[in-house]
């Protein structure tokens, strides 16, 4: 399968296989007008399989969201056909308005103007807990 390389834009590489569409949606890429390619289950030497997203525009990415969904992802910035910057994602310390607390007793259920904030409490298990009620985030 051939997908054109991009001249200017961003390539999200090493996405967890199967997570490409989720990344597409949560990063709000569906609202963009530019040329975007989502490649699912591409062969990878490192991962066996991986998803890739190519965005033919220089946009501001929410790296917190990307790091949360695919902590092993790589962000490549392409300028004039050259890879000018490579950033490795990792689990963010804090997530703001990314996940919603499902604990019916949490204050956020009655006061909906409060930001939904989750903090990384166990790095090895990639566990996030609501800062208000300490309920575990559901993946």
């Amino acid at each position: 399968m051939n997908i054109d390389s991009i001249k200017n834009g961003i390539v999200l590489d090493h996405l967890t296989p199967g997570k490409g569409m989720e990344v597409y949606r949560l990063l709000g890429l569906d609202h963009l007008d530019c040329h975007i390619a989502i490649i699912k289950n591409a062969p990878s030497r490192k991962m066996g399989k991986k998803d890739i997203i190519k965005i033919a525009d220089d946009i501001v990415l929410d790296t917190e969201v990307l790091g949360y969904i695919c902590p092993g992802a790589t962000v490549n910035i392409i300028k004039d056909g050259k890879n000018v910057e490579k950033k490795k994602m990792s689990l963010p310390e804090k997530l703001v308005n990314v996940v919603t607390c499902h604990n019916p007793r949490c204050i956020t259920t009655t006061e909906q103007e409060l930001p939904q904030i989750f903090a990384l409490t166990d790095h090895d298990r990639a566990e996030y807990r609501c800062i208000y009620c300490e309920t575990l985030a559901k993946n």
Partner: peptide, 10 residues
């Protein structure tokens, strides 16, 4: 004291 968890933090 509040019935909702996290209210005192807020």
């Amino acid at each position: 004291r509040h019935p909702k968890e996290g209210a005192p933090m807020v």
